[in-house]
Structures are given as structure tokens and as C-alpha cells.
Design a protein around this nucleic acid. Sequence first.
RNA 1: GGAGAGGUUCCCGAGUUGGCCAAAGGGGGCAGACUGUAAAUCUGCUGGUUAUACCUUCGAAGGUUCGAAUCCUUCUCUCUCCA
Length: 417
Amino acid sequence: MNPALQTLVDRGFVKSCTDYEALSALMDEGPVTLYVGVDPTGSSLHIGHMVPFFAMHHLQRAGHNLIALVGGGTAMIGDPSGKTELRQMLSPEEIRANSASIRDQIGTVIEFNEGPGMGKAVMLNNADWLTDLNYIDFLREVGRHFSVNRMLTFESYKQRLERGLSFVEFNYQLLQSYDYWILSQEHGCRLQIGGDDQWGNIVSGIDLIRKMGGEQCFGLTFNLITRSDGHKMGKSEKGAVFLDPNLFSPYDFYQYWRNVNDEDVIRFLKLFTFLSLDEITFYEKEGMNINEAKERLAYEQTKIIHGEAEAEKARTAARALFGGGGLDSTENREGMPHISIPRAELEAGIGVLDLFSRTDLAKTNSEARRLVQGGGAWVGEQRIDDPRAMIDTSFLDAEDELLLRAGKKRYFRIVIV
RNA sequence: GGAGAGGUUCCCGAGUUGGCCAAAGGGGGCAGACUGUAAAUCUGCUGGUUAUACCUUCGAAGGUUCGAAUCCUUCUCUCUCCA
């Protein structure tokens, strides 16, 4: 099999392919242009969205050309795949803004600038060709190739039929197929990749291209990444694990990976880092400390998404907090989330509930109260169990700061100014 | 267009002889115990606040009542069947 394709299989990306042999042969011949669709309905991607781009990273290094297609046109409609509810429609302005930030996020994994020995990568927007479509022309040229009977057999539509599916959304498959057609004609695109939930849309795109007289095209889908505990990938107690540091701090991001289940570590190292398979094998060895593997995963992943500096800070802070001691230097604390409080205010004394609810440790006073009453609230090494307790300068530690803690794992740093 | 069934707290889902309902149960989440910053398990908590009381919530707006998630009216949305 073609080495690049083999890499994806070995690293655990691939779920299915429309034709392994023919695709492998095509990739052997030379650079192949491939695309993946991105949904611009949010301002930030979360980690679950990144799987195809990690795969693309490997393909780009093998010299293949990438197209990230922003669904600016289709986002004004909504995608039925795997969704149980109708989606909100977005304005062109919102979509444009979202696309810009999404491009930056994708850019952490694939290279939009040209590099030696690497394939090119571009970002396109299907609004460019979908917006001006003429309805009658579209029906005549594209619509006639689709069979409603066949479309209804697709799993994604079956589910939606039980809950309701608007005609507008039903058209999504036609538009995505049309995208593939356009990309095949204008950019020589021969391969579409995506999550396994996209299988139906990809296949019908390939069919459309064939019926319209194009070249043989291919589809490659990836496993939907799940966690062994059954939780949804990319979701945490804080909500989705967004890539935007303002929505999800690098420290929390690091912690998310640091805390994956034992069973998931190796799998995630293969999927979400660029470590070689040989190196990953090292972590699989008998007697290997699983926590080292988790730390490596967290570090590598944070480094890719947020950069080396943030990864270092997060690791240092985490080691200091959990590795025992070591909290005595500012450096160790830098990666921790923090807020500032004026010294005068602290001198006057601040109620515990008030203090905790100002941090991310508790959203409301009531939540802070529950935390205190449940015995999970700490200031430094002191457990606070009285909701009326006042925190003042006597709680300051050697660094002249306060280190708040909710339970064993959630820390928050109070800097005095 | 006609007939019927429904919209409950983060989610699913009880609750409609009106008060004992901030609303059962489960899930999820948070905390405690045990641990390896894991999983599993057990326990507690899980609308808000100036907190033994008060405030806002049971699709929306009105109404009846001392008192409504529970009754009435209108509106709205979803689903099912018929055409």
C-alpha cells in the first residue's frame, strides 16, 4: 500500500475507503489533491474537529495537496449528519469572521505556507460557487442525478426523519456533492476525507462526479474518536475543549489530555501527536509508567495547538501542583489560570464565597457555598469549611499570593496587586 | 386543511382529584472516600440571593383562585394519523 495511506491506517485514522487499491495506486503516481469540509458555524473548533487535519498533516508531508473547504454556503443551511436538532442559520458576516479564526486554528496542524517537499494547502469557501447558483439550472444539471429513495436509505437521514428534517437540510447532500464536483473540475481534487458520519455525503459526491463525466474520485473516512469511558471526545466538564485559548485555557487544555483514560493514551498519541510510531511503541512497553505517556501526550498536544511556551508553562505548573511541593516559585505558577486582587481589598477581608465565585472554581455564590460545605474548598493548605469565613492577608503564602483549590485537581491563583 | 398527542429544571423523564413542588427517578456534572492528576466503586450535593427566609423557574401571554407545573382562554412550536 502507498506509504502515506499506510501511515494513516497504522495510526488508527482510517475507518473505510471507497477503493483502497485504486486510491493507493493513484497516490503512488504522484501528489493527489484532497479535501475536507469544515463547518464554520462556531468561532472556534474543538479538538474533535481536528482529526481530519491531523491526518492531513501526514498527507501533506508526503507531498499531497490539501484543500480545507469552509462551508460558508452550506452553513447557511445546516448539516443533518448526526445532529438531532435543526441548526441555526448564520449570516455571511458571522461566517466570514468564523472562517478567519478557524483558518488560524487549522494552521497549527497543517502548513498553509509552501515548504520544501510538502504539498500545498489552501482554504476555499463554497459560498463562492453556491451563492450564485441558479435553482433551475442546478436541478437540471445536478438534481436529476439524485434519487430520493436512495437518499432516504442513508443512516443520517433515517435518524432525522424520526425527529423532523426540513427540505432545506435535505438538500445538503446535493450541495456537498456539488462541492466535490466543482473541486474535482477546478482544482483536480480526487479525494475527499472526513469523519465516518460523512460517508454518505462523500459517496454520493463520487457518484455525482462519475455521472457527470468526471474522473474516478475517492473517499476516505476516519473513525469517530470516542473515549473509552463513553464520554464524547472533546467534551469536558467545562464544555467543549475549544482550541481558542480564550474559551479554554492552555492549562485546562493540557489537563484535559493529562487526564485521559489509560486505555486511550496510545491511541491518542498516534492520532493527536506527530511522534513517530517507533517512539509511541516505547510507551506501550510492559512496565512503562502510564503517567509518563499521559504527560507526553498532554505536552505534545498542547505544543501543537498552543505553542511550545504555553506547553512548557502548563507542564511546569502541573508538575508543581501534582508532583508534590514545588509551588514556591512564581515560575511554577505561571501557567495556572489566575486573577488579580488589590491588596487593600484583601486587607479588609474577602468572604470565601465571594472569593471563590470570582474565579472559575465556582460560577455563583451558591456554587461556592456548596463547594465549601462539601469540604472541597482550600486556600493554600488550609481547608475552609465555614461559608462565612473571611480570607485576609494572613492567608498569603510565601510568594505573597493565594492559591485556591477546589477539590484535588482544580487550582486557581490569586495575584495581589 | 381535518383529527389526536405533546412542550417540565444541563439532558432524558415523572408529576395535572390545585397547596406537603425549586418539582420523583435516571444521566451528566461537582465534592468526599479509595487511588496513579486514570478507570471502577461507595457517599453527599446539583436554580439564584444580602440564605432556617426571600426571589425567579415547569413553551408564551392573559384569566380563575387565599394559592397553579397542575383549572380556563388565546397564541406558538413539535409529533402522529387522515386528506
